[in-house]
Simulated assay, not measured.
Amino acid sequence: MWEMGSQEDAALVRRGYEAFIAGDMDTLRELFADDIVWHAAGTGELAGDKKGPDAVLAYFGELASRATGSLKVTLEDVAPGDRYTVGIQSNHAERNGRTLDQRQVVVFSISDGKVTEAREMLEDTALGADFWS
């Protein structure tokens, strides 16, 4: 049985996905701690740590821009835990005549009702790096 806090964290992650999918960056900003660190997976141009809400939202904007409107994220499940809340998603994007379809896991750290850290884990990191670069 999960603690109530983990259920609240799962609800926060679901709200974040809903906001991302809807393009509601204002709601996303509200869910992020001021010192959030988003670890973008891989070794491509977009990989690395994004520090602060502005940097995280700029990263999301760059993904959307590079996918020229084709980026589609589908939340498959949220797994709440004692220390982390995990979002399991599938991604679809088209870019330069190529298509990317793969699963991704994002491990969220949440404190005081805000996302403090997120770590992406891609199904195929090399494929993702190649596609986005």
Score class of each variant (00 low, 15 high):
residue 56 V to D: 12
residue 2 W to N: 10
residue 8 E to Y: 05
residue 63 L to P: 13
residue 37 V to F: 00
residue 64 A to W: 08
residue 54 D to T: 15
residue 63 L to A: 11
residue 9 D to N: 12
residue 20 F to G: 01
residue 3 E to H: 02
residue 66 R to I: 02
residue 89 Q to V: 11
residue 132 W to G: 08
residue 122 L to T: 05
residue 35 D to L: 03
residue 23 G to D: 14
residue 95 R to E: 01
residue 48 G to A: 14
residue 60 F to E: 15
residue 103 R to H: 06
residue 66 R to V: 01
residue 107 V to F: 10
residue 4 M to N: 14
residue 21 I to P: 04
residue 47 A to Y: 04
residue 126 A to T: 15
residue 40 A to C: 07
residue 37 V to W: 00
residue 60 F to T: 14
residue 42 G to R: 08
residue 41 A to T: 04
residue 46 L to N: 13
residue 45 E to R: 08
residue 128 G to S: 01
residue 19 A to L: 08
residue 69 G to A: 07
residue 125 T to Q: 14
residue 20 F to V: 06
residue 95 R to C: 07
residue 65 S to H: 12
residue 26 D to A: 15
residue 46 L to Q: 13
residue 86 V to N: 08
residue 111 S to W: 00
residue 26 D to E: 15
residue 64 A to K: 11
residue 50 K to S: 05
residue 111 S to Y: 02
residue 122 L to K: 06
residue 48 G to H: 14
residue 47 A to D: 11
residue 45 E to L: 09
residue 7 Q to E: 12
residue 42 G to W: 09
residue 8 E to L: 14
residue 110 I to D: 00
residue 93 A to I: 03
residue 3 E to L: 04
residue 109 S to H: 14
residue 13 V to C: 00
residue 58 A to K: 15
residue 90 S to C: 07
residue 3 E to K: 03
residue 113 G to P: 01
residue 88 I to E: 05
residue 25 M to H: 09
residue 102 Q to E: 11
residue 8 E to V: 09
residue 92 H to E: 08
residue 115 V to H: 06
